[in-house]
Structures are given as structure tokens and as C-alpha cells.
């Protein structure tokens, strides 16, 4: 069944929190809390608590980066030093550990950073994640609550959202 969307804009974060609370406790059919998206100009840990678990798995990519990057780098550097044209320089060992550690350290950071950035884009589904309803004011000073639900539940949701002094409710079945 095709789902419908509705977006309510709030000027005040407390009102938005109340609206979320009521949505959560409503327990209506054709609607899941995972389908609620809050759009806001700043991060809002207090609203996220109401939304339920939203897992972040960027750190696993970072872990992968910091494990694989330096090991590959170290082996690559050491085997480059030991490749056919190997040369003794300044009486030092051909595969000297302190310089290789310096480079390995830099590779550790570089691969960690690159994997984190990559993971961020994967996790945010960027570029090009366009949700159906967007209002430019959520990047300015409004809090938006976007709900995706079965079309028949939308009026009820709109009613709940409307109870908490929204500035505007938009969507397919908006008033």
C-alpha cells in the first residue's frame, strides 16, 4: 500500500517534543515510530530520545580503517624498501623501523579519516537523499516533524500534530 506523508512545522522545541510524545503513545495502526523524521536546524538529543533507537554504525567503518590502513601501509613501505633495487643509506638498516613508524602513523590517521568520511556519506545516504516533503524554514529556525503512514491514518496524525500549536501542516492531505 502506498504511504502518505505529512509535515508539521513548530517554532518551539518543547511543543515538538510534546507532539512526538503524543504520537508515540497513540499506538494507532498503519503507523510506526521509525517512520517519523524530525528535521531541525540543530542537533536535538532531547527529541532523539523520544524517537527511539536510531543506530549509528560509522564507528565500525572507522575501526576497519584504522586496522587495515596502517597494516597495509607498513607492509607496503617495508616491502618497497626491500624490493629489488634496495639500497643501504647512511649506514642505517634497509628496513628501518622508526621512519616506517612515522609513516604508518600518518597512514593510520589518513585511512581512519577517509573511512569515517566515507561511512558518513553511506550512513546519511548522501548524496541525493531527498525526502518527499521539505521546507526551507527547517534550515532556518523551525522544527519539522515528518510522518509517513497509511493514507487512512493521516487525518488522525494531523490532528495530533495540530494539537501542539504548529505553524503549518503540509502534505497530501493537509488541511
Amino acid at each position: 500500500m502506498k504511504k502518505s506523508h505529512t509535515l508539521a512545522l513548530y517554532a518551539d522545541m518543547d511543543e515538538a517534543a510534546n507532539a512526538l510524545k503524543e504520537l508515540k503513545s497513540s499506538g494507532m495502526s498503519g503507523f510506526r515510530m521509525e517512520d517519523v523524521v524530525v528535521k531541525s536546524p540543530i542537533d536535538h538529543p532531547e527529541l532523539s530520545e523520544l524517537l527511539g533507537p536510531r543506530p549509528v554504525y560509522i564507528q565500525w567503518f572507522t575501526l576497519l580503517g584504522v586496522l587495515l590502513g596502517p597494516t597495509t601501509g607498513l607492509v607496503l613501505i617495508a616491502s618497497a624498501q626491500a624490493s629489488f633495487i634496495y639500497q643501504v643509506r647512511g649506514g642505517r638498516p634497509v628496513v628501518p623501523l622508526p621512519p616506517d613508524m612515522v609513516l604508518t602513523y600518518e597512514l593510520f590517521i589518513l585511512s581512519g579519516v577517509l573511512m569515517t568520511v566515507l561511512a558518513t556519506f553511506v550512513a546519511m545516504k548522501l548524496p541525493g537523499n531527498r525526502s518527499p516533503l521539505y521546507n526551507a524554514s527547517v534550515s532556518e529556525d523551525k522544527i519539522g516533524i515528518l510522518v509517513k503512514a497509511d493514507p487512512q491514518s493521516i487525518p488522525q496524525i494531523n490532528e495530533i500534530l495540530g494539537r501542539h500549536k504548529p505553524l503549518e501542516i503540509m502534505g497530501d492531505q493537509a488541511r
Binding site: 607492509v75 617495508a78 616491502s79 618497497a80 624498501q81 626491500a82 624490493s83 629489488f84 634496495y86 643501504v88 649506514g91 642505517r92 638498516p93 634497509v94 628496513v95
Partner: peptide, 17 residues
């Protein structure tokens, strides 16, 4: 190169003179 590295590890770790 990798096998070269492992085979000749000792000579690659020698300090001179």
C-alpha cells in the same frame, strides 16, 4: 617484494659499518 622482505629480514636490519 614481500617474500624478499621476509627472506632477507636479517640482512635488511643490519647497521653499517
Amino acid at each position: 617484494s614481500l617474500s624478499n622482505l621476509i627472506q632477507n629480514w636479517n640482512s635488511f636490519r643490519t647497521r653499517r659499518p
